[in-house]
Design a binder for these strands. Structure first.
Lengths: 147, 147
DNA sequence: AGCAATTAAATCGTGTGCGATATAACTGGC
DNA sequence: GCCAGTTATATCGCACACGATTTAATTGCT
């Protein structure tokens, strides 16, 4: 053995996840630039297109983000007039999120993005699903270990 | 169909990668706190334990990071006296990175971290490898689409 | 040799991310 | 009804992460 290092970067599953995340980010960026969104903003919009009227906490749970990350992000979406934020009258601690007309209108142009991207990657639907399900298993295992 | 949204967050491979990355981060944090390193700093150290004397650019290529990210990170590692940075006399544009004795000494305590983590996740080596290889395929496909 | 083009790091501005803390609103026990 | 404890966001400080730009060094063309 010429290499004495017991830690090899390429053996790390965490590094594979980390690198794939960067690769997605780089590929998404030019497509999202046209929508005027960043990658996390895009994911937040996707979650809201699935169903708005949720609280900041519920959206955070969905996306796996803290209020310290979401609050500034949502304020930017509000400044862009895509989302509106309002205290819930039933419980003034909570802030409920709704899509504006402009926010809803963005869903059309945004629809083609994931298909464009998977097409560009040249991966088959089968490969795609296998990796996605593997990652979901992984995420669940890590979350269990954390809990 | 009761759901009209054509974009479902859970269908997104990119979201699965994004979430798994967060999950790793959360699980690594308490283990790395003991070493005084952040997660990206840890990956940089792993790369340097594999072989130091490389330039900032070479390390960036290995990790998939730009100099604008690496330079401040490396300055922090230098401030912790784990790494030293020196202009290459053969080409003064380049900065070569070497581990200090303290940096090399950290490899011992760091060794157990990945094993601790995979053990905690409760995943088998087989599952682990399957996901890692799938991700590497994915990363390569995305990089090809980007290039 | 001399100057334009290229290359390697560093710097700057913006936008995540998180832990710790603060603030404001609700809930329970009495 | 009041006060202690809890809960939901927001704020703050720090550390990535990148694109655009800058600075300094090298290369290449003539």
């Amino acid at each position: 053995m010429t290499d004495a290092s017991p830690l090899k970067l390429d053996d790390f599953l965490c590094f594979a996840v980390y690198s794939a995340g960067h690769a997605f980010n780089r590929l998404y960026r030019p497509l999202l630039d046209r929508l005027g969104l960043t990658y996390p903003q895009y994911l937040a919009m996707v979650a809201l297109w699935e169903g708005d009227g949720v609280t900041v906490g519920e959206l955070g749970q969905r996306l796996g983000l803290e209020s310290s990350t979401l609050t500034p992000l949502l304020k930017r979406l509000e400044a862009m007039e895509l989302v509106s934020r309002a205290r819930d009258p039933k419980d003034e601690r909570q802030v409920r999120l709704s899509l504006t007309d402009k926010g809803r209108a963005l869903q059309g142009p945004a629809c083609t993005v994931p298909a464009d991207l998977t097409a560009a990657s040249g991966m088959t639907a089968e490969e795609y699903l296998k990796i996605r399900d593997g990652l979901e298993t992984l995420r669940a295992a890590l979350a269990r270990a954390d809990g």
